[in-house]
């Protein structure tokens, strides 16, 4: 059945305007979608789990906040909890950390992208969405260096174009896609 399973996981980084962008991507993915998805969305340290609850209602996949030591499973979408970095271990479990902010952010996209690249190597897909800062640029470059697939949201379709613009400037990304096409693209992989 699984003939060309080139990829094993997807990581997504988003910031300002990310909630809407994530909704557009996640809500079109089918229940049978074969890759686990890890998301770092910049949120205030004291925010509650509103985003995951909201998206879980709208999506066919299970959307949840990541628990520490949780085994990464197909059919699930994991969010970095507010005020924690989300790290991926080589044994495909999740770790949380309260280490210093990276790029002024905790959770930081760079932290998740880099550790996911260590764990998944060339079988990782990295996606940078809307945001008003440069977090994730370095991480996306690392994913590319490891031979993974890199995607940036077309800045013209982004609520805040800065983050995808920085990512595109730092890395020769494989695909620049309008927000409405990303979910479709992933479904057809």
């Amino acid at each position: 059945m699984k003939t060309e399973n080139k990829y094993n996981a997807i990581v997504i980084g988003s910031s300002s305007g990310g909630m809407d962008a994530l909704r557009k991507i996640l809500s079109v993915l089918p229940k049978s979608f074969e890759l686990p998805i890890l998301i770092t969305q910049h949120v205030s340290p004291s925010s509650d789990n509103y985003i995951t609850q909201y998206l879980n209602k709208l999506c066919k996949l299970e959307v949840k906040e990541a628990d520490e030591k949780e085994k990464i499973q197909v059919g699930k979408v994991y969010f970095a909890p507010p005020n924690f970095h989300l790290l991926v271990e080589k044994d495909k479990t999740l770790s949380l950390s309260t280490d210093s902010r990276v790029n002024f952010a905790r959770p930081s996209i760079d932290v998740m992208f880099e550790t996911a690249a260590w764990a998944y190597g060339s079988s990782l897909i990295g996606i940078i969405l809307t945001g008003a800062n440069f977090d994730g640029s370095n991480g996306l470059k690392i994913i590319k260096d490891f031979g993974g697939l890199t995607i940036a949201q077309d800045p013209k379709t982004a609520h805040s174009p800065t983050m995808p613009e920085f990512a595109i400037a730092a890395t020769k990304v494989d695909h620049i896609l309008p927000i409405n096409k990303i979910g479709e693209f992933l479904s057809e992989l």
Binding site: L87, K90, V111
Partner: peptide, 8 residues
């Protein structure tokens, strides 16, 4: 310890 943490 978490290996990834140490590695970072």
């Amino acid at each position: 310890y978490s290996i990834t943490h140490i590695k970072r």
